[in-house]
Design a protein around this nucleic acid. Structure first.
Lengths: 340, 340
DNA sequence: TTGACGCATGACAGCGCTGTCATGCATGAT
DNA sequence: ATCATGCATGACAGCGCTGTCATGCGTCAA
């Protein structure tokens, strides 16, 4: 009962009556091999159940078909949508994904980038543009496409796909003011750099409206959740009872606010306006439906892979190109004060 | 400006004044190298910024440090929790993850298993136990630990970690009956094999209670969502108005039911009991708080990695071992009829 | 007919690392 | 003093594949 030896290119070549190199070519550049040889090779491959060894290929060619994806955390459901987009974009491509999580620690991110780059990936996708100086240098010198997702703003290292979180939150805050709310507050969890910029957008909008005096903001570094939304809202109402609207850093916070408002018999939108962020599917299904600032997380993932595929095909955008996917304010009943 | 050549083991060896093989050993079995040599090597590595080439290592040793994870879809938020557990379990280990999605297509799953196995992974984690015959054969002959997660039931191929979805749903249905509901229904989306077994548990519970006549079930193959929960509930109430409770295949469906009930002024739990499945964090935060059959997705992921790590360390459970993580019924206001 | 050219194919070496076996040296028992 | 033992280290070959260059053959213009 000895171990079945691995099926190699050479085995296929022997059956197909060609040299190993021709089999290799048939796999990668079929048009450089005669149709006759190609069909014999195809037969041999299926008969033997041959699967190429990616390690050997990587070692010999100095490249892999792996795209490295570096995100802060898999718990954050924003990234779940992004990953969905990534896997969608991967359809019908030979590429695979290797995922790394930084846990919001810059040193971990830098180390992860170093490790991923040492594998000569086909591309690298990193979240945000707040990498450490060392990480930035590594990415600048990378020999593969690098896509910074989630956010656009400063000139990208290579490519960037995202939106301005500052502008999106500004628009959310402006919407609350436009609907007649006079004492809006900001609730934030998981205050990563993008959340910080959302907060800045909120603050600047209020300041522009001449409401810059106090700072009606309740935040926590804890990960966002529905439960936390309720708690933050309770804290807020304790500290600032006159609040008549909340801009939430995240949709699940907004949902938690809605439930807590129901518990306290606070009418939404009459006494309290609620606006979320991201426009997750559940927002339109809630009762009342919840206003949100919509972002296209799926497209961020899908497009980032597409950029990498385009680049590998010798096309695609040049270095320095940023794609702003924008945002869309989706007003719903939760901020329609008149209807209260 | 020529490309900086890759830093190799040999470069480190030269600086440290030892042979390449000793550096290799220092990296993998530090205790087999003298402390003196070890410290010289450590210095050389940090000075050169050396990172081992995993492809070369894989080719030479015939093993990789990659754990293959094969799940149906990344959109399903159940798997998001599992992935979180997996990454948690990976902490302080040299292992990495390669994720593949089957999109619920058995042939894709088999192909994915074949490809992953060809990379000689450190372990393989697959969702469920409904693999095709071909896939099963591949897994049985795999030379690495194989963990089937999500479900326990039939004897595992190697190891299994999960729960009985049949029993969990049976318990949920029984709870509805125990609380005095007399016309419970089942709502299901994304009817994968686990959902089918939950449905079977629901049906058998009703049959055991002498209510097996009709079949109050509304399902759809579409992915689960809050919106869909509302729609399925609307369909259900149209077709079977006497329904007084619903067992939902998934928590987001249950949330959708709650909102739809609110829209229709149906009192929960008085006129309608609602029970979800998985006990996602939001269930306790809802108003009223929603009953659910809790499962430990995080632990499934964490423990599956731990099993693989134990095996690699020469310990761990023997082949054929299954770990039933069970479930816990979490009764909340949404099924507390008396309080209505 | 001849030579230049393009196409399909092949030979060779080597990617960076590790498994296996061999070697040199200090130690302690005889 | 001699030899077996154990430890730290090293030499060698090769994992499976691909980059580079070379080869053989048929085709076409002159």
């Amino acid at each position: 009962m000895e171990k079945t030896r691995k099926v190699t290119l050479a085995d296929v070549a022997e059956i197909a009556n060609v040299s190993p190199i021709t089999v290799s070519r048939a796999l990668r550049n079929p048009d450089k091999v005669s149709p006759d040889a190609r069909s014999r090779i195809a037969y041999a491959i299926s008969r033997l159940g041959y699967v190429p060894d990616p390690a050997a290929r990587a070692l010999a060619s100095g490249r892999t078909d792996i795209v490295g994806v570096i995100i802060p955390s898999v718990s954050n459901n924003v990234f779940a949508d992004v990953m969905r987009g990534i896997y969608d974009g991967l359809q019908d491509s030979p590429l695979g994904v290797q995922l790394g999580t930084t846990r919001y620690v810059p040193a971990t991110e830098e180390q992860l980038i170093r490790v991923f780059l040492s594998q000569r990936p086909a591309g690298l996708i990193v979240a945000g543009h707040d990498q450490s100086a060392g990480a930035k240098t590594l990415l600048e010198n990378a020999e593969c496409p690098v896509v910074q997702i989630m956010e656009v703003g400063p000139p990208p290292i290579d490519l960037a796909i995202g939106l301005s979180h500052y502008r999106a939150a500004y628009a959310g805050a402006q919407h609350l003011l436009d609907m007649g709310y006079r004492a809006p507050a900001f609730l934030g969890a998981q205050m990563d750099p993008r959340s910080q910029r959302r907060l800045a957008g909120f603050r600047d909008c209020l300041a522009a409206a001449g409401m810059g005096g106090e700072d009606p903001v309740v935040t926590t570094p804890e990960p966002s959740s529905v439960t936390l939304g309720g708690q933050l809202f309770a804290d807020l109402m304790g500290a600032r009872p006159q609040t008549d609207a909340v801009l939430c850093n995240n949709d699940d916070l907004a949902l938690g606010v809605l439930f807590e408002a129901q518990r306290r018999n606070i009418r939404v939108p009459g006494q309290m306006g609620i606006c979320g962020f991201n426009d997750h599917e559940m927002m339109s299904a809630a009762e009342p439906p919840l206003t949100s600032v919509g972002t296209d997380r799926f497209e961020m993932g899908r497009a980032s892979i597409q950029q990498i595929r385009d680049r590998l095909a010798g096309q695609g955008h040049p270095r320095g190109h940023a794609i702003d996917l924008g945002f869309r304010l989706v007003p719903r009943a939760s901020t329609a004060r008149g209807k209260a």
